[in-house]
C-alpha cells in the first residue's frame, strides 16, 4: 500500500555510545548537505536535551525524543512523525535518527518495517560510531555490547582514530572487521567522510548521461567515485557475481538496472556495506542501466570495474 501523495524518505540511523561522535557526525552531514534538507531526530536520555541543542539545523527540522530511548517506547511517535514528513508538501531529502547511546539498533526494526510497508520511508544506511580511543578502556560487558551493536550497522566508523597508536588502531580494526564481517569499517577523525557514502543519491534517475565512464575525485582525496552507463541489457547472474567482487572494494553503490531476463523492468540497486538490495520500479524501458560506486582511492581499481562492467553486458 504505497501512499500516492507521499515520497519514500531515506532513513539514516546513527548509533554509538555516549561521546563516540554521533552529534559530530550529524552536524557534519548537515554542513555538507549541498542544499539537501534533513530532518533530524535526536534521542537523549534525561530531562535536559543536550544533543538537541547541539544539532545545527533549523528548529522545525530538529525533533527531540525526550525522556526515552528511541528503541522502545517512542517507536510509535517516530513512525507517525516520519509518515507526516513524507506526505507533507515539502518533504525533506532524508531523515536522520540519532539513536541513544545505549539502545540496541535492532529494536528499531519494527518501526522501519511499518514505515517501509506504508511506503513512507526506507532504511538507507545504518551507521555506528565507535570511539576508538575510549574502546580500550571499557570493561568486558561494555566493549562486547559495542561489538554486538556494530554488527547491526552497514557502516562502522572507528572515530577519533588520530588519538591512538597505529598498533592499537590495527588491533581494533581487526577485532571489528572480524566481528562485523558484513559491515564496512572506516577510520575517521571528527567523523569526517563524504556524504555520498551515507546518503544514497536518487537524483540521477532519468537523467541521460553522456559519459559512459567517469571518475570523480572527491574533495577528500581518500575517496573516489566512479560511474557508468549502458544501453545494453545486463545478465543477472553475472551481475550478482560482479557485485560480490566489487562489494569488497567499494563502500557504497547505487544504480538502476535492466536485466536481460526481464528487459522492460527497471530495477533499483542499492549496496550499503555488503548489503545489496534490489527493488522493481516498474516498466520503464526507455531508461538505460546506470551504476555509481564510491570507494577508497587506494583500493578501488577502476580498470577492474571497467572490465567487470563490460563483461556483464549482454551483447544484442
Amino acid at each position: 500500500m504505497i501512499k500516492s501523495n507521499s515520497i519514500r524518505l531515506p532513513i539514516i540511523t546513527i548509533g554509538g555510545f555516549l561521546g563516540a561522535g554521533k552529534t559530530t557526525l550529524v552536524n557534519s552531514l548537515l554542513s555538507k548537505s549541498e542544499g539537501k534538507r534533513f530532518v533530524v531526530f535526536v534521542n537523549d536520555f534525561g530531562a535536559i536535551n543536550i544533543d538537541h541543542a547541539l544539532i545545527k539545523t533549523v528548529e522545525q527540522d530538529r525533533i527531540s525524543l525526550k525522556n526515552g530511548c528511541v528503541c522502545c517506547s517512542l517507536n510509535e511517535d517516530l513512525v507517525k512523525s516520519i509518515s507526516n514528513f513524507s506526505s507533507s508538501k515539502k518533504p525533506p531529502d532524508a531523515v536522520v535518527i540519532e539513536a541513544s547511546g545505549v539502545s540496541d539498533p535492532r529494536a528499531l526494526d519494527s518501526s522501519f518495517n511499518m514505515l517501509e510497508a506504508s511506503g513512507a520511508a526506507f532504511l538507507d544506511t545504518r551507521v555506528y560510531v565507535l570511539d576508538a580511543e575510549g574502546f580500550g578502556g571499557l570493561n568486558y560487558e561494555d566493549s562486547e555490547l559495542i561489538v554486538d551493536h556494530a554488527v547491526a550497522a552497514d557502516l562502522v566508523l572507528l572515530n577519533k582514530c588520530d588519538l591512538i597508536t597505529l598498533e592499537k588502531l590495527n588491533l581494533l580494526k581487526s577485532l571489528i572487521s572480524e566481528s562485523a564481517p558484513y559491515s564496512n569499517v572506516q577510520e575517521t577523525t571528527h567523523c569526517e567522510l563524504p556524504i555520498k557514502i551515507i546518503l544514497s543519491d536518487n537524483h540521477f534517475l532519468g537523467r541521460k548521461r553522456n559519459v559512459h565512464f567517469s571518475e570523480v575525485i572527491n574533495h577528500e582525496e581518500k575517496y573516489t567515485q566512479w560511474s557508468c552507463e549502458t544501453d545494453s541489457l545486463i545478465d543477472r547472474d553475472s551481475f550478482l557475481q560482479f557485485v560480490n567482487e566489487f562489494s569488497q572494494y567499494c563502500f557504497r553503490s547505487k544504480g538502476f538496472l535492466r536485466f536481460s531476463d526481464e528487459p522492460d523492468e527497471l530495477i533499483s540497486f542499492n549496496l550499503v556495506g555488503l548489503r545489496a538490495s534490489y527493488e522493481k520500479l516498474g516498466k520503464r524501458p526507455s531508461l538505460s542501466s546506470q551504476l555509481v560506486m564510491i570507494g577508497r582511492r587506494e583500493i578501488m581499481n577502476v580498470e577492474v570495474f571497467k572490465t567487470g562492467f563490460n563483461d556483464i553486458q549482454v551483447i544484442c
Binding site: E144, D148, V151, E178, A180, P181
Partner: peptide
C-alpha cells in the same frame, strides 16, 4: 548468527570471554 554472524567472529567472542 543474528549478532555473531560467522564462526570466526564466534571464536573471537569466545576468546575475549575466556580472557576475563
Amino acid at each position: 548468527a543474528e549478532t555473531v554472524p560467522t564462526y570466526a567472529a564466534l571464536m573471537g567472542k569466545i576468546k575475549r570471554r575466556v580472557a576475563v
